[in-house]
């Protein structure tokens, strides 16, 4: 049987990433209860925000009459944020328990170690997203169409990768699970200081200014388009560019922290 050590470089890297993803999957299967908060939190936010702020659609200038359609992509992305940040918490736990030290003395490149955690978070984020989506559809949210659905899922997976890079950077910097609130709060602020609650024109002036420069606003608009109207490339590409930019910046930071940790 071939081992990672006997494989050519790129295949060994892929095998290592697959092994790290399998480890994350095993964690999920062996401790299913651990996934419950990540699923529950965005669902509660979705149901809560819908019940509380649903009347906002009566405001002049609101782009849809159904608040559940407006808010569901936000909750899906929130689930991605929670899941990605949880990857950072898990990494901090691995650092505390010495597991990461063992990985760092292996011949695997640093980016491979990071990619394993990030891709696992991306895959895992589809669970809360699907759960929230099903609840929303049952409550009457608009069907986004296959195109809209695929775009929303792409945004969720990529947002989880962004959150995992953020969480991993903090985990590597602080080397403690105590940094967990910072990981969660950072993602919460990034996702919600956008057009999450209302269209841009209905936000308070300070929030409008923040939302305009927050790249996640484009991500939310791209994920939302199918739920509140038609799908277009013009609404999609800014979200893709924003996610790529965030991934490059936060991925580079996480890699830098990993190299610093190994040094």
């Amino acid at each position: 049987m071939e081992t990672a050590a006997t494989l050519p470089g790129w295949r060994a890297n892929l095998a290592t990433i697959a092994a790290l993803m399998a480890r994350a999957k095993n964690e999920l299967l062996r401790v299913p209860g651990a996934a419950i908060p990540g699923v529950l939190a965005p669902t509660i936010f979705f149901l809560g925000l819908n019940g509380v702020f649903g009347a906002l659609t009566q405001l002049k200038g609101f782009t849809t009459g159904a608040y559940e359609s407006f808010i569901v992509p936000v909750s899906m992305l929130q689930g991605a944020g929670f899941t990605g940040a949880a990857a950072g918490v898990n990494l901090a736990r691995d650092i505390e328990q010495g597991w990461t030290d063992r990985l760092l003395v292996s011949p695997a490149p640093r980016w491979v170690l990071l990619a394993g955690a990030v891709l696992a978070a991306s895959a895992r984020a589809l669970i809360p997203a699907t759960f929230v989506l099903v609840i929303a559809l049952l409550l009457g949210a608009g069907w986004p169409g296959i195109g809209g659905l695929l775009i929303a899922y792409f945004m969720v997976a990529a947002m989880a990768a962004v959150a995992a890079c953020w969480g991993s950077s903090l985990a590597l910097r602080f080397k403690s699970q105590s940094a967990a609130p910072l990981m969660q709060a950072g993602m919460m602020a990034l996702i919600l200081t956008t057009t999450a609650y209302a269209p841009l024109l209905l936000l308070q002036p300070w929030m409008r200014s923040v939302a305009k420069v927050n790249p996640v606003t484009d991500v939310i608009e791209a994920a939302r388009q199918g739920f509140v109207g038609g799908v277009s490339w013009a609404e999609t590409w800014p979200g893709v560019v924003a996610l790529l930019g965030l991934l490059v910046v936060l991925g580079a930071w996480a890699l830098r922290e990993m190299r610093r940790t190994a040094a």
Partner: peptide, 9 residues
């Protein structure tokens, strides 16, 4: 967030 996002309420 809620004040800035839902202030129009």
């Amino acid at each position: 967030i809620q004040t800035g996002g839902a202030g129009g309420a």
